[in-house]
Structure formats: C-alpha cells, structure tokens
Design a protein around this nucleic acid. Structure first.
Lengths: 328, 328
DNA sequence: AAGCATGATGGAATCGTTTCCATGAACATG
DNA sequence: CATGTTCATGGAAACGATTCCATCATGCTT
C-alpha cells in the first residue's frame, strides 16, 4: 500500500543542501544569504518538492494565517456573492479562508467564534447576527474583526451597502408613481432599513401605517407566511418593498398563488439584484447591492491591518425593470 | 490600548490547578485521572476560559483538523447548496472547513491544492476540474480526497447525482411529447451527460444530430453565447435540454431576446432545480439534483475514513412544471 | 599589520500540544 | 513482611517552523 510517507521538512532540505535549517528558512523567506548558498538551497527545495508547513510557522509566529468568514446562509445569493468577493481578495494574498454559517443565530455564531479561536484565527469577517453582544469576548481576546453587510457595533470596522439611500430612492420612486399604501417586508434586525423607510415616507408627506411594516425571520417559510399574510389582509395595498431576495421571492410566489398581478395590482421592488430578477415575469425592479465588493473590501480591511476606517459605505443602485406601475 | 494579551495555555491551567501539563492534557482528552484531580483541572480550565490551541495539537499529531473544499463557483446555486451540505456535516463533527473556488480551471485548482497541503489539510472534498490528472501528486502525498458531483478518477471515492438517469428521463419525456429535434446545451466536461443523451435518443430510435450538442464554458457569457447561437441557427429546433442552471438561465434569456416563446416555440428542461425555476415564466421543468445531500454524503465519506465505497450515486428527479409542451 | 565592521552561517530556544516513560504510592497477594 | 501489580502523576521529548545569538571569515580602514 502507498502509505502516506513522512512529509519533507525543512530539515531534509537543509541536509540535502548541506546547510543548517536556519539558512534554509532565511533563503526561503527572503533573508540574506550568499548567492551560491541560495542557489543550492533553492535547488534542494525544488528537488524535494518542499512545502513549508503552515502549522509550524503559525505556531512559532503566534498567529494563524488564514481568515475566518461567518455568513448567515451560504445558499442565499447575496451572501454567496459576498463570499466570492472575500475569496477573491484573500486568494491574492495567498490566505486560506475558513467559512461557517450562522443561520443568523447568535448562539451558533458564538460557537463558531469559539472554533475560530481554537484555530488561532486572528482575522475574521462576519455578517453579525443579533445585537453584536456575542462579539464582546472575541474582541477582548484581541480578535481582528470586520463586519460586513451589517453594522451592529461602533468599535468594529465594517463594510456595508448604503441601504438607507437604497430605501429612500425606492420609496421616492414608488411615491412618484402615485403609491401611498406601501408595505415594507423586512427581516428581523433590518432596523436601519425600516427607519429609512418610515423617514422617507414622512419626509414625502405620506402617512405612515405601522401595520404595513412586516417582519419575517430568515427562513423561506417565514418569508412566505409574511408575504402571503400581507397580501391577503391588506387589500388596500398598492406597492411592496421587499427587504431581501428571499422576501422578494416569497412575495412573487405568494402573489401568484393569490392571483395578485404584478405590477397591475401591486408594484414590487426587491432589495438585491439576483440573476433571476431579470428572468422573473415581470422582470423585477430592484435595489442592487454590490455584494461582491462588500466582501472584497471587507477582506482588504481585515488583511491590511494598518489604518482602519470606521465604516465603508458602498453605493446601491435602483434598477428599474417592469415590476412597478402607476397606482391602480 | 487593549493589546492582545497572550492566550492562556495548557501550562497556565496546569499551574492554576497545581498539576503537571500532562495531567491537564489527559483530563481534557478523556484520559484517566483521579476524580479529585479531574475536578480541580476542569475548574481551573473553566475559570481561565481555556481553549486548547488547534495549532499545537495538530502539529503534534501530524494531521490538521479541518477539511478543505474546492468548488468551481460558490455563486452558482448548485455549488452553494453542495457547500451547505458539507458545512452542515462538518459542523456536527466540529471540523472547520476551508473553502476555495477553482473557476473550473485545473491550474487554479492545482494552486489551491498546494495551499491546502501547506495547511496540512489531509482531508479534501473537491468538484474536480479537468481530467483529474491534477490530483495525482496530491494523492501520492497521501491526501484523503473525495470527489463530489463529478467522477474523473477511479481511485478516488465520489458522490454524484445520477445524471445519466436524469438525462434519460428528461429525453424520454421530451420524445414522449413528440419532440425529435432536441438540443443538449452542456458544459465542457459533462461527457457523461452527453453520452447519456445520445444513447437515450438512439435507444428511442430518434436520429442523433451531432450539431445539436453544444458545449459552453463555465462563464455566464459563454453560456449565453451558446444558447443564443443555438436558437438563432437552428430554427428547426423544438426542445432544449440545458445541462446546468446557468445554461438554463442563458436559454431563457436568449429565448426572450430572440422572441422565441417557451414552451410554445421550444420546450426547455433544465438541470438542477433552483428556487427561481418556479418563479420563471413559464415555471421551468427541471431535473432536480440533491445538491445538499451530495455535499453531506461527501463530507461523511471524508470524515469516516474507515471503509470507503467506490462511488455513491444519489437519485435525480424530473419535476414537471410548465416549460415543455407538445411538438409544435 | 592590527583593529574593526560587515556579512554569512548554524546551533539552540521557542511556540502549545500530546504522549512516552519513569517514579512513587497504594494495595493485594504470597 | 516481601514482592508484584495497578494506577495516578509529572518531566521531557517530540512535531516543524522562525529567530536570536554566537561564531567565524572576509574585507576595509588606519
């Protein structure tokens, strides 16, 4: 049997090149060495196909390479794109990324943080669940954290999309079309967006009906229940703003089920531009968020540990397709 | 400033409990110890909030915890769900997962494998790109690999969806509706599916037109180009089988662009059931694949290193919606 | 030519854990 | 009582890297 042979260590290379281990280490990490020695060491390393063990290095240097990434749900297109951004930045630094899904549950999040600490990961990008209190112990332990998509603590740098502006633009657009009874279908914890929603309505002189703000949990079922309930009980509704692609999906589905026509009966704007928004019938008007950029910038922030700005806000964009019409 | 203080080590716990480090290690990993000592150690560990360093452990034990996961594109719903399955299984074992995206490019794949080896990851789940030759060095080095979704080597266990059966069912369904000119829009490397496609046509006595098998690369652009080309140049076409959700998306988009109506002008069946398939207009008939299960089973395989079956094949299912009609 | 600066080099310590082995105590058995 | 057995325990050696420090050779300056 082809048993796993012992991996080649720095010691093997040193022997093969006829030098000490210190010299090998120096040559390989760009320290000073004579041209001849350097060549011998490099040749030996290549010949033996030597790869330094990250374990040994990290143990010695008291810092794990690699960055941890915590997202609520990798299945959600938004977080998948965010993850893609993180990976693409991390790759250019040669840093491995360890990922975990929190299910938007602070308890699971805390458990995952524990795992990361055990791995000596000192750099973490997270879409935080809950109120951010979960992060207090990790921060005290000196963890280098950057929040993405949501900002729940002032003492942690973050990268977010400008959802306040996104909401404002969307609401202005709907009001401009004559809508007055506009519902906001939001996920728990999107208080920023809810605030922007009511603020904008108020500033446009449209009466705010608190019952038209409906909160759902992160699951598909919860989203559907919220959307269906809204469409059923509020026949006076003329427009819906969905606070995420899952909520948008649920709204389209519920509308079809209940024979509510979009945009003829109600107009719909969805947060986050996903590929299927264009395939939908009608194609959905959306507030596009730069999900990949959010991830990329967050990774930059956590890798360049020098200066750390408070919060980076990336622009959103209203993409008008065909799911909104004038008030019926 | 709250500088990152030294982490508490096993030595600290030993001192606090008034025992040797060996005893602490034994107590914490379930070895034998007197009841009184055990209690003292546990108390000290809890008091100091001690977490053993995975780095130290792994270095000593010559095996990195954790499993590596290599997928072509995390943005693709199929691979995202597969990843979700891997994560959910890995979590129940308490194993961290390090993820990398290959872009379906053997070169990037090789680079990522190198990174994993540097991390001393000895367990890897991969959706292999190319012909699997990339994996020869890693296997020789004793890496514990499981393939997912594609099977490109006989000497590596794998978990795949039964795409041959899926293709057969789909083609039989289309032929049953009267279709004769059926195109297969496939990604490079899906030779299994292509073979199943032509075999099924032949067995049903339908003449096989090699020009109706079109290959695209993994990108969105390439998929669109292939779909558009097919619909433009083959006006005699009556049905399309799309070999993946990106190809399906491209077909719907291209059809809409070219004013080809689905299912009136051409019928469409898409591989992989994604959430938006139901939102599409018309809702898409699909071959559902158990993406999450594929990931979960692959993780089980790589974690239970005992017996290793050759290949696990999971069933696919034809879900009939509204994108197929009788031959026009 | 002596003294000094410079630069290459290797030995050894270190990181935090597990695990081998020796030690000693307690206990049972003859 | 002597001897053997069991068991808890702690010291020390690994694991594979980096890095401090001492050593030595070389070249330059005075």
């Amino acid at each position: 049997m082809n048993m796993a042979q012992r991996r080649t260590t720095i010691k093997d290379v040193a022997e093969a090149a006829g030098v000490g281990v210190a010299t090998v280490s120096r040559v390989l990490s760009g320290g000073s060495a004579s041209a001849e020695t350097r060549e011998r060491v490099l040749a030996a390393a290549a010949r033996l196909d030597y790869r330094p063990s990250a374990l040994g290095r990290n143990l010695r240097q008291q810092r794990s390479g690699g960055i941890g990434l915590l997202v609520p749900d990798i299945t959600d297109s938004f977080y998948a794109r965010l993850t893609d951004g993180v990976l693409s930045c991390a790759r250019s630094y040669g840093e491995p990324v360890t990922i975990g899904v929190t299910g938007d549950d602070p308890e699971q999040e805390a458990e995952l943080i524990g795992t990361l600490i055990e791995q000596s990961m000192d750099r973490v990008i997270a879409v935080p669940s809950g109120d951010g209190e979960t992060w207090a112990p990790a921060l005290r332990a000196g963890l280098n954290v950057v929040f993405a998509d949501r900002q729940v603590r002032d003492d942690v740098p973050g990268v977010v999309a400008d959802d306040r502006a996104g909401v404002r633009t969307a609401v202005e657009y709907l009001v401009g079309l004559g809508h007055r009874k506009i519902a906001f279908l939001a996920r728990h914890g999107q208080s920023q967006r809810v605030a922007a929603f009511t603020d904008t309505l108020a500033s446009l002189g449209v009466p705010v009906d608190p019952e038209l703000v409906v909160l759902a949990r992160a699951s598909r079922d919860s989203a559907y229940a919220a959307a269906a309930g809204l469409l059923q009980h509020r026949a006076d509704l003329t427009a819906v703003l969905a606070g995420g692609n899952m909520l948008g999906e649920a709204t389209v589905l519920a509308a079809r089920e209940l024979h509510v026509r979009i945009p003829r009966d109600v107009s719909l704007i969805m947060f986050d531009d996903v590929p299927w928004a264009e395939l939908c019938s009608p194609p959905l008007t959306v507030i596009a968020q730069p999900a990949q950029d959010v991830g990329y910038r967050a990774a930059e922030l956590v890798l360049r540990q020098g200066r750390r700005p408070r919060t980076v806000t990336l622009p959103t964009e209203l993409i008008v397709r065909a799911s909104c019409g004038p008030r019926r």
